[in-house]
């Protein structure tokens, strides 16, 4: 009597398994998925910044943590926290590590 129903029917899907309607993924869906995760930010200059995405705004200004700066693929420096001005950003890619 006291046993509950198996909850595998009612349980909300995990964030990652979220059903995306029509297999579309808008920029804001993407950003929700990568917030707090390791990302690679490529600037128009070709410089890459790898770190954890702390937050960003509508201009694509970005705050990152544990950031590594790569110029021509070579590690050039590290920053604890850093702010990147959005106009320089070419793309943000999710980084698996």
């Amino acid at each position: 009597m006291s046993s509950a129903l198996p909850d595998n029917t009612s349980k909300a899907p995990e964030k990652e398994a979220e059903a995306v309607p029509e297999n579309k993924r808008s920029p804001s869906d993407f950003l929700k998925a990568v917030l707090g995760r390791p990302v690679n930010v490529r600037l128009n200059s070709g410089t890459d910044y790898r770190g954890v995405l702390a937050c960003l705004d509508g201009y694509m200004n970005i705050a990152m943590e544990q950031t590594e700066e790569y110029v021509d693929g070579q590690l050039k420096s590290k920053y604890g926290d850093c702010f990147i001005r959005g106009n320089n950003v070419m793309y943000i890619s999710s980084q698996r590590r």
Partner: peptide, 30 residues
Amino acid sequence: VLEDAVEYSPDPRDKSVVVKTELKSEILLN
């Protein structure tokens, strides 16, 4: 938002050479 993105950009040392980079993850392009 792109999946399986591939970037073609000029080599910073020799601009006549195009470097192909497979990004191997989802990207958000500005």
